[in-house]
């Protein structure tokens, strides 16, 4: 639905694990830090939950970039679940780079956003990076997928 969308900044969809990612977001919230309103968070149990197909769908449905936030290697609540997740996501970035969509469209943030100010930095920096990229529209052959 294309209404008066007040989202002018590049749109970021974040898959954040309940432990590191959401705690960082909560920290930023408690401090009332000022952030742009261009991102949405989908909480997941563990970053390993995030399918690459969901990331593809996100990029095809209006997001300009996707961040997957998880815990640092060695710190996953579910033993080593995030090891496989990191390998998978990095291989996916290779595909994004091969197709010239650009590996910047996926930001892998494992252990770099678990405090308020870190979370804020990640969002601000990524917004800047995405602004430099060409629009993603040509890759999506129809707008019917949005709504």
């Amino acid at each position: 639905m294309v209404e008066e969308t007040t989202v002018r900044e590049p749109k970021i969809l974040i898959f954040a694990c309940r432990w590191c990612g959401l705690i960082g977001a909560d920290g930023a919230g408690k401090k009332r830090m000022s952030l742009p309103a261009n991102f949405r968070i989908i909480p997941v149990e563990c970053a390993a939950f995030v399918e690459t197909d969901a990331i593809i769908r996100a990029l095809a449905s209006g997001s300009d970039g996707v961040i997957v936030m998880g815990c640092h290697v060695g710190g996953c609540r579910f033993n080593d679940a995030n090891h496989a997740a990191i390998k998978r996501l990095e291989l996916f970035q290779v595909l994004l780079e091969a197709t010239a969509i650009g590996k910047e469209r996926l930001l892998i943030s494992f252990g770099t956003a678990h405090e308020g100010h870190q979370f804020s930095d990640v969002i601000q920096n990524y917004t800047t990076v995405l602004r430099e990229l060409p629009p993603i529209d040509p890759w999506i052959s129809t707008l019917s997928v949005r709504r």
Binding site: T52, I56, R57, A60, F92, I101, W139, T142
Partner: peptide
């Protein structure tokens, strides 16, 4: 033509390894 992002990328990554 097939939704480029969805069809081709999903298929390509499923075969990645």
């Amino acid at each position: 033509p097939a939704e480029m992002m969805c069809f081709h990328l999903i298929r390509a990554f499923h075969l990645s390894d």
